[in-house]
Amino acid sequence: MADPQDVKDAEPAPAPTERRPLPGAEPAALTTGRVRDARVRPAPKVPSWVLKIIMAVTGTVFALFVLVHMIGNLKIFMDPEHLNTYAYWLRTAFEPLLPYEGLLWIMRIVLLVCLVAHIAAAVMISSRARASRGTHKRRGMTNLRSFAARNMLVTGTVLLAFIIFHLLDLTLGKAVAPSGYQHIENGQAYAYENVVASFSRWPVAAFYMFALLVLFVHLAHGLWTVVQDLGATGRRTRAVGLFLAGAIPLAILLGNILIPIAVLTGVVK
């Protein structure tokens, strides 16, 4: 057994080093284990759960829109007149209850409102996420699922750029539109001719195909997030949600990507 005298003779422990005070920290952090009582943020005016529901609902509107849009696009494989008649019908649908282009303008306004709300909520949510995560970012996530999740802002920005390009190309017929773009006149739409003219330029067709892949990634993770945001906790509901979150984006991808491929390979001309 050690003699107690030995302990006394041992060198005195070095004095603890001066500790700098942390702003907002209780001085006794090292003894109580409590560093601060201050929250990361005050209670937000618009709570994050509301923002997430806004994103989920507006995102679902977009998903349903692109699904219907894709089904309409498939008419290109029937015959030119079929697609052109459909394009003109979209303008005269529900006349005389709605005015000319009434249905289109209702959809445009709804989609625009959804777009503004979706982007605003995304910006607020990601800034809150950064603040809550703090300075040390999560690293080491390598799987495919987290790739989609991590890149939602990136894929979303690409999609926004694509939407602008697509509207200029095939709706407004401006700037990036093919040189032979034909506007609707005398009850005749030229949707078929315009699509073929546009996709005959291979860089444009490539951009459409790239945007469709980006849409798939964005939508697959987005729709799976809708399942969480709208509170689906049941085992079966979640299984159905997971299936739809894969099946709907896949259908949209395949249905649409066939069109530039068909134009480039000369199947549709």
Partner: peptide
């Protein structure tokens, strides 16, 4: 006030030592 919004990364349920199902986030 302290924690972030959920973006369905699913990382939480992968590390949870109690095996809480991911359905909890919904």
């Amino acid at each position: 006030q302290d924690f972030g919004p959920c973006s369905s990364f699913g990382e939480c349920a992968d590390v949870c030592p109690a095996g809480i199902p991911l359905a909890a986030i919904a």
